[in-house]
Amino acid sequence: MIRVLIVEDDPLIARAHRSYVQRVSGFETAGVVHTGGDAIRAVAHAISAGEPIELVLLDIGLPDIGGLEVAAALAEVDPRPDVIAISSARDLAMVRAAVAHGVALYLLKPFPFAAFRDKLERYLEFRAALPAQESALTQHDIDRAFGALRTTDPKASAPKGMSPQTLEQISGALRAAPDGLSASDAGRSVGVSRVTAWRYLEQLATAGAVRRRTDYGRAGRPQVRYVWRR
């Protein structure tokens, strides 16, 4: 079993990630922490206890230390855990910085369980492709291991019955709306019905990418708005 540390500042999302880990064969949750400092201390404590953390699911937007700084600190410990970065940041500079800090995989929020499972299964294949004992690797060993990390299932990008393109369009509309959008607003923005937009918005809320906010109009009728988590 691969020991996993979950690093996520939002308790609800952290619980969701923990439940996801429990659903993927070959992995177990070794701990859940909510800050970068606690992540570094948890990894050090696990090493001193003789039960090192092997994989860290690392939220990049932490409240105390940047996720990339945490990854850099973890790269200095022995044995060094592998890191899967979890972030809504899509800019090239952030992705390049993640690679430079030794991040093995980069998982974009929002994501369904299928995408999460796909990343963990790719990581498992990466581990299996490497020799069990310390030895000089051949080019074939290296290519096979890195090939496992880079292979992905395109069907994992959106839940069953949902279009990855529509999910991306609604996500983009929400990111561009600081005050959030209602289902009607989102539907008009991307050219789908209110009910269709609501389905996608609820999926994003379940995945922890957005939060629901209830607004009351002049007539007192409540309206749910969906706000992207910054």
Rank of each mutant, 00 (worst) to 15 (best):
A97F: 08
S135I: 05
M1K: 10
L12G: 02
P159L: 01
L137Q: 02
R144I: 01
Y216W: 14
L130E: 11
A46D: 08
R41M: 12
T138G: 13
S157K: 07
T138Y: 02
I142M: 14
V227M: 08
Y200K: 05
R23K: 13
I53M: 08
A49S: 05
A30M: 03
S184T: 10
G61V: 07
P178H: 03
G208T: 14
Q133Y: 10
A97D: 13
A49Q: 15
L204H: 03
A205C: 09
P110I: 01
V70E: 12
I6V: 15
D82F: 01
K160M: 11
L105R: 14
E8R: 07
D141L: 00
A100W: 09
L201Q: 02
P11V: 11
M94R: 04
V192P: 11
S171W: 13
Q203V: 07
G36H: 13
F111E: 04
D143M: 03
R80T: 06
I65F: 05
R221P: 01
R150K: 00
D215S: 15
A128N: 12
L62V: 02
S193A: 12
G66L: 08
P110W: 03
D179W: 02
V33I: 07
A97P: 05
E51P: 06
A205K: 15
Q203K: 06
M1W: 07
P63D: 06
A44R: 13
H140A: 10
V99W: 04
I142Q: 11
S184Q: 06
E28P: 04
Y123W: 11
T214Y: 13
T151M: 09
R150F: 04
P154R: 02
L204D: 05
P178W: 13
H140Y: 01
T196E: 01
G172E: 11
G31E: 14
R23Q: 12
A209V: 11
D118N: 14
P131G: 12
Y216M: 06
V4R: 04
V32F: 00
K109P: 10
S87T: 14
G37V: 03
R122M: 09
V190R: 11
G187Y: 07
P159F: 04
S163F: 11
H34Y: 06
Y226W: 13
T152R: 02
L57Y: 04
L149D: 07
A42G: 05
T196K: 00
V24L: 07
A16W: 06
D59Y: 10
G26S: 03
R199Y: 05
F116A: 00
S87D: 00
R225L: 15
A42E: 09
E28L: 02
G31F: 08
A44Q: 15
K155F: 06
L167N: 05
G26I: 07
V21D: 01
E134W: 07
A173Y: 08
L174P: 08
T151Q: 04
A209L: 11
